[in-house]
Design a protein around this nucleic acid. Sequence first.
DNA 1: GTCTATAAAGAGATAGAC
DNA 2: GTCTATCTCTTTATAGAC
Lengths: 187, 187
Amino acid sequence: MAHRIVSDEVFLATALDLFRTYGFEGVSLKQLADATGLEKASLYYRYPGGKDAIAMAAAGEAVRWLQANVFDPLAGGGPPRKRVSLVAEKLREFYAGGLKACVMDVLSIRGGSEELQLGLKTAMQALTSAFAHVAKESGYGAAAARSKAEEAVVRLEGSLILARVLGDTACFERVLKGLPDLLTAPS
Amino acid sequence: MAHRIVSDEVFLATALDLFRTYGFEGVSLKQLADATGLEKASLYYRYPGGKDAIAMAAAGEAVRWLQANVFDPLAGGGPPRKRVSLVAEKLREFYAGGLKACVMDVLSIRGGSEELQLGLKTAMQALTSAFAHVAKESGYGAAAARSKAEEAVVRLEGSLILARVLGDTACFERVLKGLPDLLTAPS
DNA sequence: GTCTATAAAGAGATAGAC
DNA sequence: GTCTATCTCTTTATAGAC
């Protein structure tokens, strides 16, 4: 077989997609190799830590995406409500309108490394903080903002599960639509 | 090794616990055998369909639990608000205060049989309908009741994920506490 | 109805050629 | 830096004794 060139970016995007669909235990190295066009041995060259390391790197990709498309926009300037609307649009994209699962949901099921669990926890805390920040800027007090932020994360996660189980993304869309109202204080 | 006697009820309860913790792909027949005290070959005698059949039967146990502890109480008599409070208490028990995952979440990750996925979908629809029924009885119109019911399921599922990822069950407890207010119309 | 034993396939992981 | 080949362990699944 000829040598293949697969950028780390493409590799990790493919890996992340597999993990989101089948979970940590549900993805094998052969699957990862086949889906990315590399051989298993090549995966070990790139990630000597094996599947644990690949999942960790894939989750890191997701966190970087969050940083660029959610955390940064929420912290940036402009009207808070506008920022939330923009982020909702980005989230719709990331979750494919509710068809793709949340990385924090799927990868938090026992099986992956402790390091991975910790990373997911940190990411979820960061997401909550980012939501709380914009809610506070919109006029809410610190405690109320925190509460609204938690509710936003709960709704996002919950609606993604309903979408997956029911095979109907309508509830996820409703949650996205309600995000600006939920996270910004009425003026 | 001497013959062991393990009732189907005990076996399925143990199996369900394993599946809730590690997911479908994360549980092996050896794990199931070790945890229940039976040998793998005995599992195939009881469930010729193998792991798929065991997961299906375990999920069936969960549905029977829902029927007895959620659907029936919600449909029964008494003040709607009282019924919801009682059910919230039962749910706290079933989810061990937020420490145990939702079967519909964990088992809906691809890997199990199509039949299992369909069963989970039916269960979630039944749960939503049961919530909607009591909400309607409390005074909400059909559409509002349906909406409140969906929100309840979303919050339950979402808060269980937050609890798992963050290692903090406080949000699940808050959702349980807010369930009566959410599902019953103010008089 | 449960056991021991084993088959067959798939998993993670490594060695060494190119 | 990727490949082929192989190793070891685990997994699912079955055969047959008791």
